[in-house]
Design a protein around this nucleic acid. Structure first.
Length: 424
RNA sequence: GGAGAAAUGGCAGAGUGGUCGAAUGCGGCGGUCUUGAAAACCGUUGACCGUUUACGCGGUCCGGGGGUUCGAAUCCCUCUUUCUCCGCCA
């Protein structure tokens, strides 16, 4: 959520910059400013009346003490009037506030000046490409075939027990998952992150805080009976730790890492996109989250991007980094780098990580603040990134490393798997 | 799931209808003293909204929401959370 003060002071700039996200704010911004004007005016009127009521209440107390009952009762006539007025002003004020809120919630975050123009994924800018694209023989198999051949992932069993998109990992496949999770977490700890194990269900406030609600309602699994949401990413519980918190300046940056299962309904997905591990309802991910001083958040974004890149390098996967164009940038992000690994058997790039700076868009909604060295209280910047999401990494590793006797495990992973080859 | 108790500033803890944004202690910050540090002493120390060029002024907040009252941290209702006991149980 953008800050109302910023919109007030930079009205034209806000409208202009949102065009990069293909968002026409020319109607809503003036409406926001008008609503805020009404809000402030109502607040002032209400405060004045409350001030009078407070003053009179004190007078009445005094009059009673002095035994001047009649005079006290006379004053009460006015306080009764004031009570009605303040009550209705209070209701009005609440109305304006929630009206303003529901307008502000519709405004996306401003894109960073570096964000490339463009309206779709085709126009994302490749900022780095690294590693040799493997050339596999004609008989190379996609990962779902490999998974079946070596009996390491069972999609049919998942369908039977839960439904499509809920695979079973089995034997070396299961251990491979654990190895990757451990590898990712250990690398993050090495880089100075604190490990968390978060709850997998969150309440409404938390889902609202990170912006899943209200806009992505329906993409999350909802446990009706207790009104809890299954997390679509560990970002939700990990960032919400700091909701309504004022940090000390020397507590920044906050660097947290969490492994969690992630749950997504993926309503509307279909076809080859959902084949095998490409898109699941439940998957595993290691997420890194940072809270940082506004002056340093873009350096941090670079560091987080470098961290994700180092993981892919160690896994010996060819990858590329894309700077998302305005049209592909998420609602909440100011600048996002997507990581894609090349799947040789499917002959396509698979998104495995997304690293973003949200600047103060999330923290304004969640009121994540810090006390700066000069004593002033400011919103932090929030950043997060996958480091990394498992399923497509697994898909690419299986496909790219297949050979006649099975699938070889990247050497960086062997100390976590305890085996060097799948299939023998 | 049942019964009972509780929730106050960074922490501990007082306050049961008016002068309470809230005693006191600890902690934090600034100062005096000291070569420096500690101790001691003095001062200071919440957030948000509105208004003001500014000093300031006004308003809201004592777990959340609602109510009673001229007036609520204090009384009532409700929700949440924590603790104790019982039941069940990885």
């Amino acid at each position: 959520m953008l800050q109302i003060k910023y919109i007030q002071e930079n009205r034209d700039e806000v409208i202009e910059r949102l065009k990069v996200k293909n968002f026409d704010a020319s109607v809503i911004v003036p409406e926001i400013l008008r609503t805020d004007e009404k809000r402030r005016h109502t607040q002032k009127t209400l405060d004045d009346h409350l001030a009078e009521a407070n003053k009179l209440a004190k007078e009445i107390g005094l009059l009673f003490k002095q035994g001047k009952i009649d005079e006290a009762n006379k004053v009460k006539v006015r306080t009764a009037e004031l009570k009605n007025i303040t009550k209705s002003l209070g209701t009005q004020l609440e109305g304006f506030k929630s009206e303003l809120d529901s307008l502000l919630i519709q405004l996306p975050n401003l894109p960073h000046p570096d964000v490339p123009a463009g309206s779709s994924a085709e126009e994302n800018k490749i900022v780095l490409q690294e590693g040799e694209l493997p050339i596999l023989g004609e008989d190379a198999l996609p990962h779902w075939e490999l998974a079946r051949r070596y009996d390491i992932i069972d999609f049919d069993l998942g369908s039977k027990v839960s439904g499509a998109g809920f695979p079973f990992y089995k034997g070396k496949g299961a251990k491979f998952q654990r190895a990757l999770i451990n590898f990712f977490i250990e690398e993050a700890i090495e880089a100075g992150y604190t490990e968390f194990q978060p709850p997998l269900m969150v309440n409404e406030d938390s889902a609202y805080g990170t912006g899943q609600l209200p806009d992505k309602d329906g993409q999350m699994y909802h446990v009706n009976i207790d009104n809890l949401y299954l997390i679509p990413t560990a970002e939700v519980p990990i960032t919400n730790i700091y909701r309504n918190v004022i940090l000390k300046h020397d507590e920044l940056p906050v660097k947290n890492v969490a492994y969690s299962s992630c749950f997504r309904r993926e309503a509307g997905s279909y076809g080859k996109d959902v084949r095998g591990l490409n898109r699941l309802h439940q998957f595993d991910k290691v997420e890194i989250v940072q809270l940082q001083h506004p002056d340093r958040s873009y350096q941090t974004l670079d560091k987080m991007t470098a961290h994700a890149a180092s993981l892919l390098r160690k896994l010996e996967l060819p990858f590329r980094i894309l700077s998302l164009c305005g049209g592909d940038l998420s609602f909440t992000s100011a600048l996002t780098y997507d990581f894609e690994v090349y799947s040789a058997a499917q002959k396509k790039w698979l998104e495995v990580s997304s690293v973003s700076n949200f600047e103060n868009f999330q923290s304004n909604r969640m009121k994540i603040r810090f006390k700066d060295q000069d004593g002033s209280i400011k919103l932090t910047h929030t950043l997060n990134g996958s480091a990394l999401a498992l399923p497509r990494i697994v898909a690419a590793l299986l496909e790219n490393n297949q050979h006649e006797e099975g699938i070889s495990v990247p050497s960086a992973l062997v100390k976590y798997t305890g085996f060097e080859n799948i299939g023998t």
